[in-house]
Simulated scan of single mutants.
Amino acid sequence: MTPKQIRSVLKVVEVGSVNRAAEVLHLAPSSISAQIRELSQELGVALFDQVGRRIVLSRAGQGLLPDFKRFHALTQDIEQQARSVSHEAVGELKLFAPSSMCIYRLPPLIEALQKTAPQLEVTLTHEPFDYQAALHNREIDAAILVSQYEDEQWENHPLMDESVIYVCHPDRHQNKKLSLEELQREPLITTEPGCSYRVVAEGHFKTQGLTLKPRQSFSNVEVIRRCLLANMGVALLPRCVVAEDLQRGDLVGQAVEGAPYGFRSMLVYPKGMKVLPKLGALIECIYGDNKNIL
């Protein structure tokens, strides 16, 4: 079993055909097919099934796919470590972050990282995405989360205290603290189901015997912000998303009983994972001379 064989299998899975995988990897299709055939013979199982003109992972291939991904990630780590003997941060740093962090927290941190590690490429993925599986399978190096608690399965590096508030257009604002019953009468806009902000708000409503029933929900906080500027409702958002709008008076925080909700943004990765120079460079930006940029 070789890294090239595993890379070819994963690329065929990703792009859906041998020909497209060959184009991406700059190899002949016959070379990709030979690598897959040799790996199948070595393992004693067919990795792909022919379905019409397409090939799809066989049942055995599906079962082995997580291990293939871990093998590929380990190979990349070894290559990265070999290139980083001089402790230079090089290669690709793959991160997950919610859209609020991608847009409003990470840009200055990435800018600082580019100055200290100019050979490092940062790739960001945002929701919807199963970041936990991706971390365990080494498909990403780390994740930026917004949570009220530290999860014991991760190494946690706190970034910022984050206040999650109810906010609306000035024309909709009520100059009093709303009860949840009163808030419920407004057209509510929230993030997608399962988002940490929404889960906490749902729990808050439940303590009052109510059910949070948003009129609209979006995975992208910038879409929600645009809805607020168009006076489409009251939304639940991290303060950092609307800080400039609040300062200009384009939006207004709406006081609500039991709110705002306290969160913390943090960098996380699996406990016991070896921290390569590329991730170490990001951690250094968080705690080093650039720690005040957030």
Rank of each mutant, 00 (worst) to 15 (best):
Ala46Thr: 07
Ser265Glu: 10
Ile36Thr: 07
His157Lys: 09
Ala73Asp: 00
Val122Ile: 07
Asp141Lys: 07
Asp49Pro: 00
Glu14Gly: 04
Gln132Asn: 08
Ala34Pro: 00
Tyr197Trp: 05
Pro118Leu: 14
Val164Tyr: 06
Glu88Arg: 15
Gln184Tyr: 01
Leu57Thr: 00
Leu124Thr: 03
Cys168Asn: 07
Ser17His: 09
Lys274Pro: 01
Arg54Tyr: 14
Gln119Ser: 14
Tyr197Ser: 09
Val85Ile: 15
Val256Asp: 10
Tyr149Gly: 00
Arg54Cys: 05
Glu202Cys: 08
Pro187Asp: 02
Phe205Asp: 04
Leu229Gly: 03
Ile6Leu: 04
Asp130Gln: 09
Gly258Ile: 00
Asp49Cys: 03
Gly209Asn: 11
Cys285Ala: 12
Glu244Ser: 13
Leu267Ile: 04
Asn156Ser: 07
Leu43Asp: 02
Thr190Lys: 03
Glu192Gln: 11
Leu135Pro: 07
Phe48Gly: 01
Ser30Asp: 10
Cys168Thr: 14
Asp151His: 13
Val268Trp: 14
Lys271His: 12
Arg248Trp: 03
Arg54Val: 12
Leu267Thr: 05
Arg59Ala: 15
Trp154Leu: 05
Ser30Gln: 13
Ala34Glu: 05
Ala259Glu: 11
Ile32Asp: 02
Asn19Arg: 15
Leu276Phe: 12
Leu251Cys: 10
Gln119Val: 09
Tyr197Arg: 12
Phe263Arg: 14
Phe68Leu: 07
Leu188Asp: 02
Tyr269Pro: 08
Pro66Gln: 06
Arg198Ile: 01
Arg83Lys: 10
Tyr104Met: 03
Lys177Gly: 01
Ser265Pro: 12
His173Lys: 05
Asn175Ser: 11
Leu228Met: 11
Val122Pro: 13
Val241Asn: 04
Arg226Gln: 14
Ile144Ser: 04
Arg248Asp: 09
Ala143Asn: 08
Glu202Asp: 08
Val252Asp: 00
Leu64Ala: 09
Val146Thr: 15
Phe68Tyr: 11
Phe71Lys: 02
Asp289Thr: 03
Lys4Ser: 14
Arg226Thr: 03
Ser17Met: 12
Leu57Arg: 02
Ser30Gly: 09
